[in-house]
Amino acid sequence: MGGTKDGTASDGLVVEERGGDLLAVCFTAMAGPCELLLPASDRADARELGGLVAREAWRVEQKYSRYRSDSVLAWLHSHRGGNVVVDEETALLLDFARTCFMMSDGLFDITSGVLRGAWTFDGSDRIPAPAVIEGLLPLVGFDKLEWQSPRLMLPAGMELDFGGLGKEYAVDRAYDILADCRSAAFLINFGGDLRANRPPPCGVWQVGVERPDSDREAVLLLELEHGALATSGDSRRFLLKDGIRYGHVLNPRTGWPVVGAPRSVTVAASSCTEAGLLSTLAMLQGSGAQAFLAEEGVRHWVLL
C-alpha cells in the first residue's frame, strides 16, 4: 500500500493516496489503525471529513475506554455499589447489551471482563486453576446488575466492558455523521470493522481480511458495495497446553475458552454493530460457528 504521505499533522490524521483512485485518511483509535476511504478528491476536504470520523472515534473511545481514568466507564466503576443515573447514550448501550445477553442466553456478556484477570493469553501453557475461575464466576452476569434505564447499580467487584461492541458502534456512529453531510461514496474502517455507504466510482470496495496468525497478510479478499463487515478473530492470543489450543474467546457462563472456535469469522450486515454481534456470537458457538451463521442466513466468511 504505497503512496505519498502528507505526514502526520498535529490533528493526528494522515492523508494517503491508495490504488483505485482512492484517498485514505488514517488515524489511530481504539488501539488500532483506522481509516476513512474516499474516491480521490481534494485533500483538504478529505482531511476535514476524516476529522469528523476521527473525532467521533476518539469520543467513543474516550467515553468507554477501559484504560482511561476520565472515561464514563471509570466513573461507573468508581461508583460500584451505588445507584447512579447514566447518560442517554450509555443507557442505550446498556439496553442493547442486555438484549444481546438475553438473546444469546448469557453468551454475550459485557460483565465478563473480570475473567481476564484469570487468563493471560501469552502463548504459554499457564492455564488458571479451576478454583480461581470458580471464584470469579459470581462476579459475571448481566442479570446481576440492577439496570432500569437510566438507573444502574453495579455490584461491588463487577466490571463492565464495552470492548465487544464499542468499535463497531463507533463505526456506525461515525457513519451516520458522515452520511448526513456527504452523499458521495465513503468507507469507514476501524481496524477491520467497516461500513460503506455505496460503491466507489471504480466499482466495488475491496476489503482484505487478515489471517489472524500471519502478520498482516490478507488472505481473504472480499468485495463490498455497501453495508458493513465485522470480523471477530482468535488472533494471536492463545494458550497451548497438552495439545489443546485455548483461544481468547471466553464463555462467560463457564469462565473457560470456547472450544473449537474458528480463527476468524467475518459477517456482512447492514450495520457494523449488527455484523459485529453476529460474528462474536458465532465465535461463541465454538465449533458450531458455521452452523449458526448458516442458520441465521447471513453472508459470512469463516477461517478455520
Binding site: 448501550l93 442493547f96 444481546c100 438473546m103 456506525d172 450486515a269 450495520s271 454493530t273 453476529l278 441465521e296
Partner: peptide
C-alpha cells in the same frame, strides 16, 4: 437472532 439483533441495533443507532 439476526432479526432481534437488527431490531436492537436499530434502536441503539
Amino acid at each position: 437472532v439476526r432479526r432481534r439483533l437488527i431490531a436492537a441495533s436499530c434502536t441503539l443507532l
